[in-house]
Design a protein around this nucleic acid. Structure first.
Lengths: 147, 147
DNA sequence: TTCTTTGCAAAAACTTTGCAGCCGA
DNA sequence: TCGGCTGCAAAGTTTTTGCAAAGAA
């Protein structure tokens, strides 16, 4: 795992490359999103960011996520209970979404994984982002149900 | 492609198996959704269904889609512009979503496609549904831009 | 300096829900 | 018959937008 300082420097560099102004709010939103393993919705992330930046407003979180997603600095994981969930990792990977507890977990690709979006979409157009959701019941919920 | 009568019979059989009551509204909603290649949102489908069933209400369309999705008789394709889009085909396939024109197209699997959700999610839990979105710019929009 | 961004508040958009009468099984 | 379904209307949630002040390049 990349250390945080390096990750934040990279974020700021990419912002400048894409003409996205670097503001304290954007930096903090990205930092907290990177730290969250839970793939939070806007409001959840807002609560998190408020701990270190109490004056921030919810609409700034919405606007920032929406901007960063458009610039592919962040990606959406899908919608759970009507709320859009986000991920700071844009590298190709999958998500397991539990329909029972609403948790979202990363699934990183195995060595033998040959799934290739640009081959799959050959002829359809240019692919900028990929979102792969596997929905079902997670191990925790299965264990709890059988206990 | 399966003919419509056969598809509708299958739908009604599956409804009964899953204890979902067969009503004219549900049948018509499913029929129109099956006919739509565009993967419509609830409101778009509502307009479509109203052509043959003028008295239906929008909330019935919402309730029906939500029920059918829970029963895996229909699946969601993801959210485009804040609206959930649906698909009557539940067999594993992919979707190409154009961020420019908001169109959603099916991508059926190639012969050599070895992507297997239950292997990918091995150990994470039980997978009930899969949703794979490739987002980008479609051929049409690319051609229009370069013209 | 200039154009963008933020916070506040209000609004918009989509979706859900309560209720009474109706209908499928 | 009985429990679930529908239409109507109203509410609920999430997300977006207008505006003036503050801030990044």
């Amino acid at each position: 795992m990349m250390d945080e300082k390096k990750r934040m420097d990279e974020f700021m560099t990419q912002c400048r490359e894409r003409h996205v102004r670097v503001t304290p709010q954007r930096v903090e939103i990205f930092r907290q999103l990177s730290r969250c393993a839970e793939h939070p919705a806007a409001e959840t992330l807002y609560e998190r960011v408020r701990e270190t930046m109490p004056a921030i407003s919810l609409d700034t979180v919405y606007r920032t996520l929406s901007l960063l997603e458009a610039k592919h600095l962040v990606c959406t994981v899908g919608t759970v209970d009507g709320r859009t969930r986000y991920d700071a990792t844009t590298a190709l990977h999958y998500h397991f979404i539990c329909d029972r507890c609403r948790s979202v977990s990363d699934i990183f690709r195995g060595e033998d994984d040959t799934f290739d979006p640009s081959i799959v979409a050959a002829g359809m157009g240019d692919v900028d982002a990929v979102n792969i959701q596997l929905r079902g019941t997670c191990r925790n919920c299965l264990d709890r149900a059988s206990a």
